[in-house]
């Protein structure tokens, strides 16, 4: 069931702008908080835990985990925005309803939310990369900048997954499923925190099916080495699954909003 109102248009940018206006009121506090958090993560995992880990293919554990943290921050940020944030807009504050009394379609609203998730992912990942560069963990600034489109895709993808849940959720507590079934497995098994080599075949296969794994491979390759093996394959999986999830998000939100 694809209704006319589900097709997005340029008007999605008007929704995106609303989110930006709202963000302006709290970003300073958020950036300060995130910055401190990122430093803590890096110290705890990269240097604390990292002391126990031998060098991996000639790179330190802190180097290894840096790109993994960049990608997972993109995932966390866009997930929060699209689950708790979108549910609040959809059900509590009725922001969606107000938008729908203006000439915006559901497709515009969903795409606007997703573009915003991508934007937040870029902001979060950039902060993390600034922290990495302070610790000398970025190979080249230009290669680091080149990961931003991938981060944006990660934001779109997890924004879409979050919106699917937000459309289904009967209450806020529903999102604990989303976190334990979608976010946590990827956080742990998408080669974010440890390499998969030497793990049981089943686990490695599972990891390959996680879309985030492919984002991590691209981002790690670019940040550390400035090149990525099988780049097009990883990009295809990442972009393909993002498109599918975006369609699912539109359907889920439409079912909730149109009676």
């Amino acid at each position: 069931m694809i209704a006319a109102g589900m097709v997005p248009s340029r008007r999605a940018l008007r929704v995106w702008l609303r989110h930006l206006v709202q963000y302006r009121s709290f970003y300073v506090a958020e950036w300060a908080g995130n910055f401190g958090e990122h430093v803590l993560y890096l110290l705890a995992f990269g240097y604390g835990l990292g002391r126990l880990v031998p060098s991996l293919n000639g790179i330190s554990y802190a180097q290894f985990i840096g790109p993994g943290l960049v990608v997972s921050i993109a995932m966390w940020t866009s997930t929060f925005e699209s689950t708790y944030g979108a549910y609040n807009r959809m059900r509590v504050q009725k922001t969606y309803e107000a938008m729908m009394s203006a000439p915006l379609s559901l497709g515009d609203i969903v795409l606007g939310d997703l573009l915003w998730c991508g934007t937040r992912a870029i902001i979060g990942a950039t902060l993390m990369m600034i922290v990495l560069s302070l610790f000398g963990l970025i190979g080249s600034l230009w290669w680091a900048l080149s990961v931003l489109p991938i981060i944006f895709l990660v934001g779109l993808m997890f924004g879409s997954l979050g919106l699917v849940s937000a459309g289904l959720a009967p209450s806020f507590s529903f999102f604990s499923f989303h976190f334990s079934l979608v976010v946590m497995p990827m956080f742990f098994f998408a080669e974010t925190l440890f390499p998969l080599r030497g793990l049981p075949d089943g686990l490695r296969l599972f990891s390959q099916t996680l879309p985030l794994t492919h984002a991590v491979k691209i981002v790690r390759g670019l940040i550390i080495f400035g090149r990525v093996d099988d780049f097009l394959f990883h990009l295809f999986i990442l972009a393909g699954s993002t498109l599918v999830f975006m369609a699912c998000a539109t359907i889920s939100v439409s079912r909730r909003m149109m009676s």
Binding site: K94, E97, A98
Partner: peptide
Amino acid sequence: REEMGVVPQEDTLDNEL
């Protein structure tokens, strides 16, 4: 909708703005 204004029963103001 471009030519119609709607005042809903429930408050749909943007509380964060």
